[in-house]
């Protein structure tokens, strides 16, 4: 029997800087925190940054690092904040950090929902009610059945995730459900309306479902295939204004324990680390990675 070890291949820029499209930097509106680094309680087969229970190549952020970036972001007039991972709820100071962020601006947390038991749902509700700003939870679920979801997110996850969603519904919260289109046709109009009906049946009073295209990097490149680097999807020079506005890299940055990165997708990309401070990271971005194609061509936006 062979044991398949997780392989993480950092993906180098495949596009020459002189040939790459350029995204001008408009303003720092959003800051993403890679709160738990690559640590997650599950190991999804389509995870574009290959997170997992033993995956610590990008370390968890310390409370001091989070607070330092939060303070810098507030000084710069940042509009809103996101917690991502890995699974942000694994952070031992998750709730106090969430409260601190909500004191200065709106916060969205990207979670798989598995750690949301009755007590955590109550805490989320308390925080939601106490905050001046929006506290939005985004729960990932990749199918309307265990048969559809579990092959990509792991055995038993459908039940665990839907239980978490039901706990949130019980306390009157209505998280946004995000669905990765890991099978052809999942993003069709019919599938979208079925999914919406499905989350209503889970108890969500104000259902909202966000579909997202696959990113063919990280573990997904092993599950199916990577990008075809020969495909010419780009042209050099500044991108059009409307496209720039839609792209995260024109107005957002990702902060990690190691420094500031371009965006949550390029966490493993050599060359995507910009600087140690947000101020120094407010620069135009050359779209040098194949994964940028998914945002540019397929219209992916990590925003809620």
């Amino acid at each position: 029997m062979t044991v398949r070890l997780p392989i993480v291949v950092p993906f180098s820029p495949s596009i020459d800087e002189a040939q790459a499209p350029e995204v001008p930097f408009s303003a720092l509106d959003t800051v993403w925190f890679q709160l738990t680094g690559t640590l997650c309680n599950i190991a999804c087969q389509h995870c574009f940054i290959s997170c997992g229970p033993k995956e610590n190549r990008v370390p968890m952020m310390t409370e001091a690092t989070v607070r330092s970036y939060l303070s810098e972001a507030a000084e710069l007039g940042v509009r809103d904040y996101y917690f991502t991972g890995g699974e942000p709820l694994l952070h031992p100071q998750f709730w106090t950090l969430a409260e601190s962020v909500l004191a200065v601006g709106p916060l969205t947390v990207l979670s798989n929902g598995i750690l949301i038991d009755g007590a955590n749902a109550e805490r989320a509700r308390t925080l939601f009610d106490a905050a001046r700003y929006s506290f939005d939870l985004r729960i990932s679920l990749d199918g309307m059945s265990a048969e559809e979801n579990d092959p990509v997110r792991g055995r038993g996850t459908f039940e665990a995730i839907t239980r978490g969603i039901a706990e949130l519904a019980r306390v009157g919260l209505s998280p946004t459900i995000t669905v990765v289109e890991h099978r052809t046709g999942m993003g069709s109009e019919q599938s979208r309306s079925q999914f919406l009906q499905f989350v209503v049946e889970l108890g969500l009073s104000r259902p909202r479902v966000k579909f997202m295209p696959l990113l063919r990097i990280g573990r997904e490149a092993e599950r199916t295939h990577g990008y075809d680097s020969a495909l010419a999807w780009y042209s050099p020079g500044p991108v059009e204004e409307a496209l720039a506005e839609r792209l995260l890299c024109s107005s957002s940055r990702l902060v990690t324990e190691h420094g500031v990165m371009i965006c949550p997708i390029l966490l493993d990309a050599p060359g995507a680390q910009l600087a140690k401070t947000l101020r120094q990271s407010m620069t135009p971005i050359a779209l040098r990675w194949d994964a940028c194609r998914t945002c540019v061509v397929d219209g992916l936006s990590c925003r809620t």
Binding site: A27, E75, G77
Partner: peptide, 23 residues
Amino acid sequence: PRKVNEFLWESSSSDRFLSRLLD
């Protein structure tokens, strides 16, 4: 002031962001 179709909601506009727009 920076974009005709930008939505300024109460709960998603931080004080610091609004100050920045005014500045």
